[in-house]
Design a protein around this nucleic acid. Structure first.
Length: 771
DNA sequence: ATAGGGTTAG
């Protein structure tokens, strides 16, 4: 590289022959500060450099570097006959500013005499490069340190989630200033340790305005509005940021009236204030109010446009979103990403792909949006392909792309990839901090590794309500109702208030574990103990709980008497219960109502036709299928997939496209014999009657989950669990067969369907056949 | 002339 070569020359050929400054001077390249003619004359006369000349050249270097012109800066540097350490420092700092880390380090290593500035510049370089280990080593090697060095080290730790290390530095510093105090405060706030932040704040007076804002922002992020407000009220001085923080706090929490009142009271409304209001209304589903504010904004930037677009996207009004997207003056990556997400989640994956291909600059969010889109649309192979490409494309995953990637792993249940991400996350120093812990926890839950989920949960230092909810929900979905309730009891002792989401998980846990009485008790305790008003979703949980336990009468009574109109999910719970307990009449009634609510819900047709088939009403079952065809309802195709050696293998019904198809089918044929010996009978009455008996058996045999399980048994080493994911609910016959298979092959088979986890082991399933 | 911090909207 030219730059390196020239540097080497520079250092090996000292002293450099004096050159004519005038001719080497780049045109218009340095500040036209007045220079006395006498000095210039003197310079010309004896070809020597004065100190004030060096200063001028140094300024030139800095100017070039600030404009991103590293080459020009280097040219100036090379042309100098004498250099001070400032010249070197300016070069090093400039290289770092322009992300040329290696050049900076080379020059630092080669410079003749390093002063405190040089060390501090380099220290910051390592910190910015997030190489805390090397930064610390350099810090220890420094011949002397001043408060700048200490603060740089402190903030390095703080920004990368090493709160305890930051605290260590803070405690060791011989001298602290406002920056040091605020650095530690921000470390706590950014890493979610709001209680520590609060304690620190109370330990001293005379905080700067920024620190007041910082603490208030921390409370807002934790949704502790009362605490945030008390900080706001106690602040000795307020700036725009203080007002904007509290206003957006209220807006994000749906308290729009208070937000509006403060908006009017605020001395200044800037683009932040206005946008906070717009997004507040958007987040509370009040699109018209949001739009009217948006239209009245005196000044908009891309964030404001994006907030409004996101509002339309949320309501799946992609036409309106598109209109604004086309109309906005300058789109940033976020605008594109919002649209991509919107299209992908509305099922327009091709539209999403089109935008993705055409956007000027993709970031990790764009990739994640496509991956999530593909996996939600059942295209897990494309999802995985994009995932691998993303890692290649993004040179460094940042904290939020890690979180996105983790949630992608959760969606497609790619446990191995998730584990790898976990390792890379630790290496990058991101294992703690906002959201990352919860994302890891959720990943392990959804990927079906409840033990690793528990470990991840225990590693979260300051568990928030989301952490607890995720853990409880995870246990519930895995069928570990008792464990879920134990965690819930533990949560109550920590002083974290359960919220309505907690209670959904708790009720679901009772439901999956068949704990009717306990579930009812929890349901009544919601309001009594925690002041939580039961929402429709809680009633639906109760219908599910009672229904599964066979108390269909009670379930119906609850639906009649509850203060809400049942929605499709409520009726769905009743339908599921009717199916389990063979009550065709009730199931039919529920299904009819769901048809009216969701005429294109293919799952319901299939569930109902199975219900008919199960009770031998073949013609009704056939009618359902015909009606489905007439109405143009498309059946969502069933997929199952599993991860083997970092690859996702996807199967659909009767799939023969897999390279190991022959082995899989041979295995299943052999398994068939063994199954029969074990007493398994294929429940052929569960498929449509107008299929020939022989074909029926065939269809059942080749369901996607069976193919995936077979592949797993063949290619996953003995002793390891086989984890299969299905995008729909597991077929009843397959469920039955897999129970037997688990016994015959002596393997643990973990199946995630779109409702819960099934642990097949030794001939039985953790769902106890209720799902 | 060169080095350190933090807060608000998508």
């Amino acid at each position: 590289m030219g730059g390196n070569y020239r540097l080497r020359q520079l250092h090996s050929s000292c002293p450099i022959p004096t050159i004519n400054f005038q001719s080497a001077k780049p045109k218009n390249s340095y500040p036209s500060k007045k220079t006395s003619t006498s000095q210039n004359n003197k310079k010309k006369q004896n070809f020597s450099t004065t100190d004030s000349d060096i200063v001028k050249w140094n300024i030139a270097i800095t100017t070039h570097m600030r404009n991103g012109l590293c080459e020009s800066a280097l040219r100036v540097f090379n042309s100098m006959s004498r250099r001070s350490s400032v010249s070197y420092n300016a070069m090093i700092s400039g290289y770092l500013r322009n992300h040329k880390f290696d050049l900076a380090r080379d020059l630092f290593d080669k410079m003749p005499e390093r002063d405190l500035f040089s060390w501090n510049v380099m220290l910051t370089g390592y910190v910015r490069n997030r190489d805390l280990k090397t930064a610390r080593a350099l810090f220890e090697r420094m011949p002397e340190r001043d408060i700048v060095s200490w603060n740089a080290m402190l903030s390095g730790y703080a920004q990368n989630g090493f709160v305890d290390e930051a605290r260590e530095i803070f405690d060791k510093m011989p001298l602290k200033n406002g920056i040091s105090w605020n650095g530690l405060l921000a470390a706590y706030v950014q890493n979610g340790r709001i209680e520590d932040a609060k304690r620190l704040f109370e330990s001293k007076m005379d905080w700067t305005l920024v620190s007041w804002n910082c603490l208030m922002g921390g409370f807002v992020r934790k949704r502790r509005l009362l605490d945030a407000r008390s900080v706001f009220d106690r602040m000795p001085v307020r700036d725009e940021i203080s007002w904007n923080t509290i206003i957006s706090g209220y807006a994000q929490n749906g308290e729009m009236e208070e937000a509006r009142r403060l908006f009017e009271e605020s001395p200044i409304q800037d683009v932040f204030t206005w946008t906070a209001m717009v997004s507040g209304y958007v987040q509370n589903g009040k699109l018209d109010e949001a739009r009217s504010i948006f239209d009245r904004m005196p000044e908009k930037n891309s964030v404001s446009w994006n907030a409004m677009i996101a509002g339309y996207v949320q309501c799946k009004r992609m036409d309106m979103a598109r209109e604004l997207f086309e109309e906005m003056p300058s789109r940033d990556a976020s605008s594109w990403n919002t649209m991509i997400t919107g299209y992908a989640q509305s099922g327009y994956i091709a539209h999403a792909r089109n935008l993705f291909d055409n956007m000027p600059q993709r970031d990790s969010i764009s990739w994640s949006a496509m991956i999530a889109g593909y996996s939600q649309n059942g295209c897990s192979e494309e999802a995985l392909h994009f995932f691998v490409e993303m890692q290649r494309d993004c040179e460094r995953l940042n904290r939020s792309s890690f979180t996105c990637a983790l949630s992608t792993c959760s969606n497609i249940a790619a446990l191995e990839l998730g584990r790898q991400l976990h390792c890379r996350l630790v290496k990058a120093g991101y294992q703690t901090g906002w959201y990352v812990g919860n994302a890891l926890l959720a990943m392990y839950c959804k990927c079906g590794s409840i033990d690793e989920a528990r470990d991840a949960f225990q590693e979260i230092l300051e568990k928030d309500v989301v952490s607890w909810n995720t853990m409880i929900h995870g246990y519930a979905r895995h069928g570990f109702g008792e464990e879920a309730l134990t965690v819930f009891e533990l949560m109550k002792t920590t002083g974290i208030r359960p919220d309505d989401a907690t209670m959904v998980s708790v009720l679901a846990a009772c439901s999956h574990a068949g704990l009717v009485d306990q579930g009812s008790e929890y349901f009544y305790s919601m309001n009594r103990d925690y002041g939580i008003t039961a929402k429709l979703v809680h009633y639906t949980c109760m219908v599910d709980l009672l229904g599964r336990a066979g108390q269909l009468e009670e379930a119906q009574n609850l639906m009649k008497n509850m203060p809400f109109e049942p929605d499709a999910a409520t009726w769905g719970a009743l339908l599921g219960a009717s199916r389990i307990h063979g009550n065709t009449e009730l199931g039919e009634k529920a299904a009819q109502i769901i048809f009216e609510m969701e005429p294109h819900n293919s799952g319901m047709y299939i569930l109902l036709s199975k219900l008919y088939a199960a009770s031998g009403r073949w013609s009704d079952a056939g009618k359902m299928r015909l009606e489905m065809r007439n109405k143009g309802v498309k059946k969502v195709p069933g997929y199952s997939w599993l991860e083997v050696q970092n690859k996702i293998h996807t199967f659909k019904v009767g799939d023969t496209s897999h390279p190991h198809t022959d082995k899989i089918y041979t295995f299943l044929e052999e398994m068939d014999l063994k199954l029969k010996q074990e007493g398994y009978i294929s429940s052929t009455n569960l498929v449509f009657h107008d299929v020939e008996e022989e074909e029926k058996v065939h269809m059942l045999k080749y369901h996607s989950e069976k193919l995936a399980v077979a592949y797993g048994i063949l290619y996953i080493p003995a002793g390891r669990p086989i984890r299969v994911i299905k995008n729909l609910r597991v077929c009843e016959d397959c469920h039955n067969a897999i129970k037997y298979i688990s016994k015959i092959v002596g393997r643990l088979i973990i199946l995630r369907d779109n409702h819960r986890f099934h642990y097949f082991e030794g001939g039985s399933c953790s769902c106890r056949d209720f799902w």
